[in-house]
Write a protein that binds this DNA or RNA. Structure first.
Lengths: 178, 178
DNA sequence: ATGGGGCTATTCTATCATGGAATAGTGTCA
DNA sequence: TGACACTATTCCATGATAGAATAGCCCCAT
């Protein structure tokens, strides 16, 4: 299963306890996770509820002087465990969508927490190379037609990823300016 | 709205009347639409029900000597209208996923029905070029960080599509061998 | 004051997608 | 005749998604 929103939210809460609306703004801001993928209002609160029910986070209602009541969530120890095993996933998916969404989310969270990203990138690169080899083999045995075209496109997309992925190491950490 | 499964199924039924299980095999076969995207059993029947309720197709139960009863669906005139307006969509989406799924489905259906594909390809290419220009502009004004990386990846993916898309014209029609 | 509009914060609802199991007929082979 | 595989469809539980609904708080004009 993927559950990218769940793991990403755990990462954001590992950075610091936050309430739903605060998290939402990170997904709305095109300079933050908003550029990677959109999380709808209802899904965000649904995921928080699920994580809470599963014991990965704990919520505490807090009254505020200048705003309606809010629920501040804090990551629990088993949430932290789950987060680290997600970040250090040994065999990340190499589907095009996963690279754009899950891998970039991992990078975002790792940077936020000031963790090293080299291993994350290395494993993703390896997975993409393996995927590319598999697709090339399929393409070269596929009959001409749409299936051949589709595999050809996928190889091209993986090549684009492999050309791009090394640039991911060269961006500074920015966990402090949130 | 997208509704790619609906439009694709209309295309398959425009080729010839078929029942659910027959359609399903086209999506299971990796040499046919199976390479483009998977349609689950339940979704296929759900879409057929929806199309039928909306009057785009009509179903007729048929008993068979060597198999359980089945429902054979036939495309209705307004279904055919809808199909053609989908095939000739003047402004196709240029998202990476749309190209891989919707554009290739259009191509598949156009080939199946022995319709010309040049215009479909031309419009898709144009849309991708516009999308590329927009993403480049966003990237070059984005702050360094994950958002910049994400846009950079998207530009690379669009370049890969533009390199690939001209090869789509050079594949023979194969509507006869189903 | 008061009532509208806008921001914060969350919930609710309806529809659709997804994967899997369940049902049920038909043919094959031992 | 019982096990198994294939055909054909339905059902169910869970999750995703968009949108409206609710509701407190603040500012500003009437």
């Amino acid at each position: 299963m993927a559950f990218i929103p769940d793991d990403t939210l755990l990462g954001l809460l590992a950075f610091r306890p936050q309430h739903g609306y605060q998290l939402l703004e990170i997904f709305r801001d095109p300079a933050e996770l908003g550029c990677v993928w959109k999380l709808s209002v209802s899904q965000l609160y649904a995921v928080l509820k699920r994580l809470s029910a599963q014991g990965y986070i704990t919520g505490e209602e807090m009254a505020s002087a200048n705003a309606p009541a809010r629920v501040v969530y804090t990551i629990a120890p088993i949430g932290r465990e789950r987060l680290y095993s997600w970040l250090h996933e040994p065999q990340p998916s190499a589907s095009i969508r996963s690279v754009r969404v899950e891998f970039l989310s991992r990078l975002y969270i790792a940077r936020l927490l000031n963790l090293p990203t080299i291993e994350i990138i290395r494993r993703q690169k390896l997975a993409c190379r393996q995927e590319r080899a598999a697709r090339i083999h399929q393409r070269d045995t596929a009959p001409l037609g749409v299936s051949h075209l589709s595999l050809d496109l996928q190889v091209g997309q993986l090549d684009a990823i492999l050309n791009w992925i090394d640039r991911c190491e060269m961006i500074p950490h920015d966990g402090e300016d949130l």
